Simulated assay, not measured.
Amino acid sequence: MSLSERLNEDMKQAMKSQDKFKLSVIRMVRAAIKNIEIDQRKTLDDNEVLDVLNREIKQRRDSLQEFEKAGRADLAENLQAELAILSEYMPQQLTDEEVKAIVEQTIQEVGASSKADMGKVMGALMPKVKGRADGKLVNQLVQQSLS
């Protein structure tokens, strides 16, 4: 079952169980996917749907930080619940140790030796961890390894 089909099935299930919150989150994601499909005039595959999900999760994490800084616990709690629902559709996340091992392996593969090679490393590394690791964490680990 593709990711889009799973979203559709979960939306139907949320309607049947009258879970309005989950239904609204899934509809929001499906609307974002549909907008991109309309813009690109094609149906998105699972990798492209994962990109949309990643973007939505990143937006919520950024907003969550801002709400916590502003002391808006009510809004932060709502975003936490949305993040939990969106995370169900993401592949299993890599541990920090697994990410470190992939970073080291990629640095060896591209022959990087200094921070000037960071672009090469990131270009080769991101497809390997796409959707399974946070970009900020990957960036930090690459910087640490190259310094």
Rank of each mutant, 00 (worst) to 15 (best):
Leu83Ser: 01
Asp46Glu: 14
Leu53Asp: 00
Met11Asn: 06
Glu97His: 11
Lys69Ala: 15
Val25Leu: 01
Arg60Gln: 09
Leu94Gly: 02
Gln93Asp: 01
Asn35Val: 09
Arg61Thr: 06
Leu75Gly: 06
Val121His: 03
Asp46Ala: 03
Leu94Glu: 01
Glu97Trp: 02
Met15Gly: 13
Ile33Ser: 05
Leu7Tyr: 03
Gln59Met: 13
Glu109Val: 09
Ser145Asp: 08
Arg41Thr: 11
Ala124Ile: 10
Leu146Ala: 04
Glu66Leu: 12
Asn47Val: 03
Gln93Ile: 07
Pro127Met: 06
Leu146Pro: 03
Leu86Asn: 04
Ala31Trp: 10
Ile57Asp: 03
Ala101Thr: 13
Met15Trp: 03
Ala116Cys: 03
Glu68Asp: 11
Lys136Gly: 12
Gln40Leu: 14
Ala14Val: 01
Ser113Lys: 15
Lys100Ala: 09
Thr43Gly: 07
Arg60Trp: 12
Thr106Met: 09
Val52Ala: 10
Ala76Glu: 02
Met11Asp: 02
Ile85His: 01
Leu23Ile: 01
Arg27Cys: 07
Ile33Arg: 00
Val129Ser: 08
Glu48Ala: 15
Leu50Asn: 03
Ile57Val: 14
Asp46Gln: 01
Ser113Pro: 00
Gln92Ile: 13
Leu3Ile: 10
Val121Ser: 05
Gln80Ala: 05
Gln105Ser: 07
Gln144His: 15
Arg132Gln: 14
Lys130Cys: 08
Leu64Arg: 07
Asn78Cys: 08
Asp39Phe: 11
Lys16Thr: 11
Asp62Cys: 06
Asp51Trp: 01
Phe21Glu: 11
Val52Ile: 14
Ser4Asn: 14
Phe21Ile: 00
Leu146His: 06
Gly131Pro: 00
Ser147Ala: 12
Arg60Thr: 06
Ala14His: 01
Glu9Trp: 11
Ala116Asp: 14
Asp134Ala: 14
Asp134Thr: 07
Leu64Ile: 02
Glu5Ile: 08
Ala133Lys: 01
Ser114Asp: 07
Ala101His: 08
Glu37Lys: 00
Asp10Pro: 00
Arg6Pro: 00
Gln59Asp: 15
Val142Asp: 04
Leu94Val: 04
Gln140Leu: 14
Lys128His: 00
Lys58Ser: 12
Lys115Ser: 10
Asp19Gly: 06
Ser145Leu: 03
Leu64Val: 05
Thr43Pro: 03
Lys120Val: 11
Asn78Ile: 04
Glu97Asn: 12
Ser145Met: 07
Lys120Trp: 02
Ala84Ile: 13
Asn47Pro: 11
Val25Trp: 00
Met126Leu: 15
Arg72Pro: 00
Gly111Leu: 12
Pro91Ser: 07
Leu146Gly: 06
Ile36Tyr: 10
Leu53Met: 07
Val25Tyr: 04
